[in-house]
Amino acid sequence: MAESWDDLQKRQPLAAKMLMNSLQKNRVAHAYLFEGVRGTGKKEMALFLAKGLFCRQPVEGVPCMECDQCHRIAQGNHPDVHVIEPDGLSIKKEQIRLLQEEFSKTGMESRRKTYIVNSADKMTVQAANSLLKFLEEPHPSTTAILLTEQMHQMLPTILSRCQHVGFKPLTPVFFKEKLVEEGVHPTLASVLSKLTNQVEEAVELSTDEWFVQARKIMLKLYEVQKTDPFEAMTRVQSDYLPHFKEKSQIDQSLDLFLLIYKDLLYIQTEKLDHLSYPDWLDTFRTDALQTSARQLSDQLAVLLEAKRQLQQNMNTQLLMEQLMLKLQGGSALV
């Protein structure tokens, strides 16, 4: 999804400022490491940097986005800008070898060349060692941009040869605005902005009937368990278990539940723009007034413990039945 410079600045202001200064002062490093969680704009920023290096008519370092160079980079067919993606589960030595061969040739369009390695932490040991040699003896006018979510899985010798640029998780408020722009209903955008940092994933979930139903089930379960945890256990049997079957789905259900209790906390602290379920504000406001800060803290701890026990493969029905009982008391799961 193509993004404007204004979008990238809003999304990652510190990274954008650093790279813009480098372009304006013509002090672009020979190798960068863009590090941050999925969906934070690393690849978009890498392509922006590449456009800044090749653009025919940049304005104060900002690429025009209109010239043939910018268009070809955006479309992935510029002969001097190479993007390496994992081949299956890893980036293999052969991919790096072919890249080295390509870069031993004179640039097709200019003397400059740029390569972007996506998921650089997935390089095999052999590929990483080959890339290291490449970084140790950089070609003139060559810029490497490595993208990773797992910096700790990369060779320290590679890290030491790159300028590190950190990408922060998107703020839920900014992300919600982005989703609404993409056509997601504001009510769903509120909760989705807390569950993922990926615009594409959030848009897909917003039209997924399974997810829409999952949200309804967890809100109903919350309503029932407030007054009758035993009725809630019946609901676990009739509504919850048939809908949430895979471990990832169960984990997401606990996240949806956790966000309900976080909303109560936001209401108590008057942070209404942080709500995940703004359509439930009236109900939650009443509940927040009747819940002490201590009880709410205990309930949040119960939910976090349930997520931990899910990862230890605790039986789902037992986990949820305990959760219904413990939430009312606010005591930790045993």
Score class of each variant (00 low, 15 high):
Arg38Thr: 12
Arg215Asn: 06
Phe34Trp: 09
Ala293Lys: 14
Lys168Gly: 00
Glu3Val: 06
Ala127Tyr: 05
Val117Pro: 01
Met320Pro: 04
His274Glu: 15
Val191Gly: 11
Ser190Arg: 02
Val59Trp: 04
Cys67Ser: 06
Pro242Trp: 09
Arg215Gly: 03
Glu305Arg: 13
Ser331Phe: 13
Ala202Trp: 04
Asn21Gln: 14
Ala127Asn: 13
Tyr32Asn: 03
His164Met: 11
Lys43Ala: 10
Ile217Gln: 09
Lys42Tyr: 11
Glu181Tyr: 00
Leu195Ala: 07
Pro229Cys: 02
Arg285Tyr: 13
Cys67Asp: 09
His164Cys: 04
Phe167Gln: 11
Pro140Ile: 06
Leu23Cys: 11
Phe244His: 06
Ala120Phe: 02
Ala202Glu: 09
Lys43Tyr: 08
Leu289Ser: 13
Lys42Cys: 10
Ile267His: 01
Val191Met: 12
Leu188His: 11
Leu188Gln: 14
Arg56Met: 11
Asp287Thr: 05
Gln9Gly: 07
Glu231Ile: 08
Ile250Asn: 04
Val62Thr: 14
Leu296Tyr: 00
Leu155Asp: 09
Val236Thr: 09
Glu3Ala: 10
His274Thr: 03
Leu300Asn: 04
Glu94Lys: 08
Lys133Trp: 12
Glu181Gly: 01
Gln322Gly: 08
Lys307Trp: 06
Cys70Phe: 05
Glu101Cys: 00
Glu177Met: 05
Gln328Arg: 15
Gln268Leu: 08
Met218Cys: 12
Leu281Gln: 15
Cys64Pro: 01
Gly52His: 00
Met324His: 02
Val334Met: 10
Arg215Asp: 04
